[in-house]
């Protein structure tokens, strides 16, 4: 996504992000009142699973597209401790 080590990793993150983005609009379950495992409404079960998938996406992003260079830049000597706008 930003300053990535692997541009292919970043592209994949974006592809998965867009897939999830559109998968959120689960119009096919709009009026499905069945219960998953006998207690969980279908629409809720789908979105709970969606949350797990989001976690997977961001795990993938952290390990394939981490902004390593930005981190190194921030760790180099700066003016930490001084706020430029207040001086």
């Amino acid at each position: 996504m930003i300053d990535s080590q692997s541009s292919s990793g970043s592209k994949l993150v974006w592809v998965f992000f867009l897939l999830l983005f559109f998968a959120h609009q689960d119009f096919w379950l709009w009026s499905d009142d069945s219960l998953v495992l006998g207690f969980l409404p279908m629409g809720l079960a789908y979105h709970a699973l969606f949350s797990v998938a989001c976690s997977g996406l961001w795990a993938f992003a952290c390990f394939r597209s981490w902004p390593e260079k930005l981190e190194q830049w921030a760790d180099e000597d700066g003016v930490s401790g001084e706020n430029p706008s207040s001086t």
Partner: peptide, 11 residues
Amino acid sequence: IKLWSFGKKYG
């Protein structure tokens, strides 16, 4: 992460 890096760099 970007804002954290600016915060760290520039205080």
